[in-house]
Deep mutational scan, measured.
Amino acid sequence: MTEYKLVVVGAGGVGKSALTIQLIQNHFVDEYDPTIEDSYRKQVVIDGETCLLDILDTAGQEEYSAMRDQYMRTGEGFLCVFAINNTKSFEDIHHYREQIKRVKDSEDVPMVLVGNKCDLPSRTVDTKQAQDLARSYGIPFIETSAKTRQGVDDAFYTLVREIRKHKEKMSKDGKKKKKKSKTKCVIM
Rank of each mutant, 00 (worst) to 15 (best):
N86G: 13
D108C: 08
K88M: 09
L120S: 13
V112K: 00
E91A: 07
K117A: 15
D119T: 06
V114R: 00
C80F: 14
M72I: 05
S122I: 08
D126T: 09
G75I: 05
C118V: 12
Y64A: 02
Q70N: 15
D126W: 07
Y64K: 02
R68A: 05
T74L: 08
M72H: 05
D105C: 12
A83M: 04
D119G: 09
R68G: 08
M67F: 15
L113S: 02
I84C: 15
F78T: 02
L79Y: 01
P110R: 02
H95R: 14
M72C: 05
L79C: 04
G77K: 00
L79V: 08
S122L: 08
P121L: 11
Y71T: 13
F78R: 01
V109D: 01
S106N: 09
S106Y: 12
K117S: 14
Y71V: 10
Q70I: 06
Y64S: 01
R68E: 03
L120C: 11
R123Y: 11
H95S: 05
G77R: 00
G115I: 13
V112H: 00
M111K: 02
K117W: 15
D108A: 06
E76N: 09
L113I: 14
G77E: 03
K101W: 06
N116M: 15
D105K: 04
I100E: 01
L79P: 02
F78D: 00
I84H: 15
R97G: 06
S65W: 08
E76M: 14
C80N: 02
V114N: 01
G77I: 11
C118Y: 08
E76P: 03
C80Q: 03
E63Q: 08
M72Q: 07
P110A: 04
E76T: 14
T124Y: 10
S106L: 12
E63V: 03
V112C: 03
D126N: 09
K104P: 04
Q70G: 11
L113C: 07
D105V: 05
R102D: 05
R73L: 08
M72R: 08
C80D: 01
V109E: 02
A66M: 13
M111C: 04
A66P: 12
F82K: 01
S65Q: 11
R123L: 11
Q99F: 10
L79N: 00
S106T: 12
V112G: 01
P121M: 08
C118F: 09
K117Y: 15
G115F: 14
D69Y: 04
E107A: 13
A66N: 11
N116G: 09
G75P: 04
M111H: 00
I84T: 15
A83W: 01
C80S: 03
K117V: 15
P121W: 09
M67R: 15
M111I: 10
Q99N: 04
V81Y: 01
N116I: 05
T124D: 13
K101D: 04
R97F: 15
V109R: 03
P110D: 01
Y96V: 09
A83I: 01
L113P: 00
S65H: 08
R123P: 12
K104Q: 11
N86T: 06
E76G: 05
E76I: 13
D119M: 03
D69V: 01
S65C: 08
D105W: 04
F78N: 01
T74D: 14
G75H: 06
V109L: 06
A83D: 15
K104G: 10
K88R: 09
Q70H: 11
G115K: 03
F82C: 14
V114C: 06
S65G: 09
K117M: 15
E63F: 02
G77W: 02
T74S: 12
C80T: 03
F78W: 04
E98I: 01
R73E: 11
N86A: 07
Y71H: 15
T124I: 09
